[in-house]
């Protein structure tokens, strides 16, 4: 069996507090190969923290524990902070929800991108510029040379997110974690940005972890789906088989979305069963 890109076993994220420890992620296991893996859940389900834990970006006093957390067989749970800095951006990149907060407002877009590249690859400044412009072109930005000199406040939300994608893919990482990459964008721009991200990830044979609350969007852009509830994985399935999902939570999520083409008088409302919280986490290893 080939070693997967990412192998996570029994991941916990814990926040100690005055009264009782709060476990935000509770014993999650999954693997990621050269595929597109979606993590879906409501706010507070632990999906974003799972993504952050992979990059060891959980802020103190949060604690990350796992039986195993490996990238290409390399243990990243106990890697040094210096090694993690190399891996972040170099091997695993992350795209956050709102490009406005991820880009430095006082540096031009191009400067930031070439700096990010030069932090991970030994290239000359002029070489970095050429590569940056080529990358901007790849995310379907017209006139990349003009955009290179723009400042973040001068670009629209959709373009900003494409710039983020370009910036994150520039050092050729093996894994991309996209945390709600389009929920700050308008519907019509969403699909365009996701299409671009999808194409690049596939062309480069990368692994993608797509974190979102939108089950339908994830189903469209992913191969495999993990559904999280209260810090656990309640169900995992192939995206194509989502309609055959069994868990009542998954069904509830699917049926609560209002659909323009299939109108209903009342939307189905999720009846939360306390047993879902206590059921053991499903393993999403392949």
């Amino acid at each position: 069996m080939i070693e997967p890109l990412l192998n996570v076993e029994n991941l916990w994220v814990r926040f100690p507090s005055r009264n009782a420890d709060f476990d935000a992620v509770r014993g999650v296991s999954f693997t990621l190969g050269q595929e597109r893996l979606g993590i879906v859940g409501e706010s507070g389900s632990g999906k974003s923290l799972t993504g952050r834990a992979l990059l060891r970006l959980i802020q103190s006093p949060g604690i990350v524990e796992a039986d195993r957390m490996t990238l290409h067989g390399e243990n990243i749970l106990h890697a040094s902070e210096a090694r993690m800095r190399q891996l972040r951006g170099g091997q695993i990149s992350m795209i956050m929800q709102d490009p406005k907060f991820s880009l430095n407002p006082v540096m031009s877009v191009g400067q930031q991108m070439s700096e990010a590249l030069r932090a991970h690859k030994k290239v000359s400044k002029s070489q970095a510029r050429i590569q940056t412009i080529k990358m901007l072109d790849e995310v379907a930005i017209r006139d990349p040379e003009r955009v290179f000199d723009l400042f973040p406040h001068e670009v629209s939300g959709g373009m900003g997110q494409r710039i983020m994608i370009a910036m994150m893919l520039l050092p050729n990482p093996k894994i991309l974690i996209a945390d709600e990459p389009t929920s700050a964008l308008d519907v019509s721009v969403q699909i365009q940005v996701l299409d671009i991200m999808d194409k690049l990830v596939r062309d480069r044979g990368m692994g993608l972890i797509f974190i979102s609350h939108d089950l339908n969007l994830v189903a469209k852009f992913c191969d495999r789906i993990i559904i999280m509830y209260a810090g656990r994985i309640v169900e995992t399935c192939k995206a194509s088989e989502l309609r055959q999902a069994k868990h009542p939570y998954t069904l509830g999520l699917l049926n609560s979305v209002p659909n323009l083409e299939h109108p209903r008088d009342r939307l189905d409302v999720l009846k939360r069963d306390p047993a879902w919280r206590d059921a053991p986490s499903v393993s999403a290893c392949q």
């Binding site: 409501e42 706010s43 609350h213 939108d214 089950l215 509830g252 999520l253 609560s256 979305v257 209002p258 008088d265 009342r266 939307l267 189905d268 409302v269 999720l270």
Partner: peptide, 13 residues
């Protein structure tokens, strides 16, 4: 969240 959205939309209706 979508599940909460459904509750609020039902309530509004």
């Amino acid at each position: 969240d979508v599940s909460v959205q459904a509750e609020i939309l039902n309530l509004l209706a």
